[in-house]
Design a protein around this nucleic acid. Structure first.
Lengths: 197, 197, 197, 197
DNA sequence: AATGAATGAGATTTCATTCAT
DNA sequence: CATGAATGAAATCTCATTCAT
C-alpha cells in the first residue's frame, strides 16, 4: 500500500500530469483513473483531486498543456521552407499524435470535452491553411489546378493520423503506396502545378 | 428498478446485440457495460452473460455481425461501375462507419481484439485494391501517372474515416475543400490520367 | 458455448457424480458448482438440477456413493490378518482420503450435511474397533497395557489423515518419525505387549 | 441498508480483521466475503478493499496476526516444565486451533496461500521438537525406546487437531480412550521409559 | 500541500435455481 | 431425459469523490 517511489519532485502537480500523459499514451484514455495516476506518481489518490477537482479537469489540463506545446511546434514547423512536408511530418509523429488521437476518441464519450478539442482542431487548421497559402509560390501559369489550402490541410493531417492509427494496430498494407501519393501531391503543390487558394 | 420496456422481442440475444450497437455508436465503446446493455434491453444483467460469456465476447460478436454486413455491402458496391466513388461513399456513411471507428479505438486498449480488427481492415484493403485495379480503364495516354491501387484504397478509406470522425466532433472546417480534392483525384483516375498498378 | 465432448454415456447421472468427485478432489468442495459440473460433463446446467434438486443433494449423493464403496473396502481390509496395519494403509491412501477430508471441511460450512458425515465417521469407528478388539491376540501375560480399541482406531485414523493432509500441503517434516512411532505401537499390539479392550 | 451498529471503533482495520476471524471460526473460510465482513463491521464493502486490496490479502493478514500470537503462546508453553503436556493442551484448544484448521483447509484451494501456511507448520514443528528434545530427561534406563522428537511433535499436534476437528462435527466416540493413549505416551516419555532423540 | 479514511455506485462475473418446452 | 432462457443474489474489485486533519 505504500507509495511507489516518491522521488523528490518539484511539483506533484506536474508529476500527476506527466503520469496521466504516460498512462494515456500507453494504455489509452480509459486507463486514466485517479487511483492509477496516484499510484504511478507515488501519491495518495486524494492529492490528485486536490490539484484537479474532477477527472475531467485533469484530462483538460493535460489537453491544454499538450496542445500548447503542439501549437508552438506546429507554428515553428510551418515557418520553415516547406510547410506542407513539415505538416506531414508533424502529424506523422506517433509520439505526440497518439495522445491527440486518444483525446479525439475521448471526445466521443465526454461531451463536455468535445467542444474544446474541436476548437483546437479548427484553430490548427486555420493556422496551417494560412501558412500553406502564404507559402504557395505566387503561382505560375498554365492550367495549374487550384486546391483549397484548408482542404489540403485536412487531407494531410487526416492521412497522417490515419496511417499512425493503423500502424498502431499493426496494419501497414498499402501505407507505402499511400505515402507516395501524398508525396506526389505535395510535390505538385511545391512545383506550382497545383496552387492553393 | 423495473425493466424499462420489455418489448415483445423475438430473441433477446439479438436485442442485446442491437443495444450494444446503439450504445457504442452513441456513447462510445466505453459505455458498453453489462448493466447498461441489460437495462436498455429490459432484461437482467445476468442474461447478457448467459448469451455472451464475457464482455469481450459480446463486443467481438457485434464486430463480426457488423463486419459481415459491411463486407457484403463493400463487395456489392465495388462491383458497380465506379468503384472509387462507391468506396468513398461507403466509408463516408456515418451509420456503419462510426462503429468501426469505435472498434479501431477499442483495439488500442484490448490487445486481444486488436488482431481480429487489423485482419479485417487488411482484408477489406485487399478486396478494394483488387476491385480498383480491375476497374481502372486499360487507360492509355501520355504521361499518365501510376498510383498503387492499394495506396489509393488507403487514402480514400482513411480520408473518409477522418472526415466522419471530425464531423462527429463538430469539426467541418475545410471538409468541403478536402472532398473536392478527393473528387479531383477520383476523376483523374476515372479519366485515365492516373492509372492504377 | 458448446458442450465439451458428449461421450456416449450410459447415464448422465453417473457422469455428473463422477465429475463432481473429480472437481472436489482436484479443486476442493468450493469448486463444485452446478455450472462447472455441467461444463465438465458436457451437459446443460439445468440437467444437474434435474437429477439433483439442490447442490446439497448432489453433494450428499456423492458422499453416499463414496462411503458405500469405502465402507465395503474397510470391512474387507479389517477381515485380513493384520487389521491395524490395514487400517493405517486405508486411511493413508490419498486417493479416497482427500475427498473424505473435503467432506469433513465441508461439514463446517453446511450444517445440514454435518450430521450425516458425523454418523458415518462414528459408524466406521465402531466397525474398526470391533475388528481390532476381535483380532487382538487373546493376549498374554505380564504387565501388558490395555488400550481401548476405539481409542486406537481414533489414533490410527486421525494420524493417517493428518499426515495425508499435511503431505498435500507440502509439509513432510517429521512424518517418517511419526510413522515409526505408529509402527512401534502397532507392533506392540500385535505382539500382545499391549492388548485391546 | 443502514450499517448495522456503527460501533465506536478504534480502528476499522482491526474491526475488519476481528470480523473475519469470527466468520472464519463460526462458518468456515468460505463464508469470508467482502460483503459479509463489511456488514458485520457495519461499514461499506469498499472499505474492506481499502484496507486489504484483495480478499487474499485480508486472509493472509489475519493468518499472520493469528500465527504471531500463536507462535508466542507456543514458545511460552514449551518453556514450562512439561512441554509435551503443554503442547497437547495448546493444540487441543478449540479457540485458536479451529481457525488454523480452516487455514489448512483453505490452503488446498488457494495455492498462493499454501506456501505460507506450510512454512508456519514446519516452523512450529521445529520449535516444538527442539523444546521436547531439550526437556527429555537425560534419561537412562534399560531398554528405553528412542522416539524422534519431531515425530512425537507430529503425533501430538496431529492428534490434537484431529480430535478438535471431529469434536467440531459432533463426533466424540473414542476420544476419551484416544486421549488416554496419548497420556500414556506422554507419561512414558516423561518417566524416561521413552527418550527423545 | 498532502493524506487516511470512508463511501456509493458500478463493473464483471458466477451461482443456484426455476420454468416452459 | 434434456435443454434454453431467464433471473436475483452475491462475489470481487475499481472508481470518483468527499472530508477531516
Amino acid at each position: 500500500m505504500q507509495p511507489a517511489v516518491r522521488k523528490a519532485r518539484a511539483s506533484s502537480r506536474e508529476a500527476i500530469l506527466a503520469a496521466t500523459e504516460k498512462l494515456m499514451a500507453e494504455e489509452g484514455y480509459a486507463a486514466v483513473s485517479t487511483r492509477r495516476v496516484a499510484k504511478m506518481v507515488g501519491v495518495a489518490p486524494a492529492l490528485v483531486h486536490y490539484h484537479f477537482a474532477t477527472t475531467e479537469d485533469l484530462l483538460m489540463a493535460l489537453f491544454r498543456k499538450l496542445t500548447e506545446a503542439s501549437r508552438a511546434e506546429t507554428i515553428a514547423a510551418l515557418a520553415g521552407p516547406d510547410p506542407l512536408k513539415a505538416l506531414w511530418a508533424l502529424n506523422s509523429d506517433p509520439g505526440a499524435t497518439v495522445i491527440i488521437h486518444e483525446f479525439m476518441a475521448l471526445s466521443n464519450h465526454r461531451k463536455e470535452i468535445r467542444a474544446e478539442i474541436a476548437a483546437y482542431v479548427e484553430e490548427m487548421r486555420v493556422i496551417q491553411a494560412e501558412a500553406l497559402a502564404a507559402s504557395s509560390s505566387a503561382a505560375t501559369g498554365g492550367d495549374a489546378r487550384q486546391f483549397g489550402a484548408m482542404g489540403l490541410s485536412v487531407l494531410v493531417a487526416g492521412m497522417a493520423r490515419s496511417l499512425v492509427m493503423e500502424g498502431g494496430m499493426g496494419v501497414t498494407l498499402g501505407h507505402e503506396e499511400a505515402q507516395k501519393i501524398i508525396t506526389v501531391l505535395i510535390d505538385a503543390v511545391r512545383e506550382g502545378k497545383v496552387t492553393l487558394s
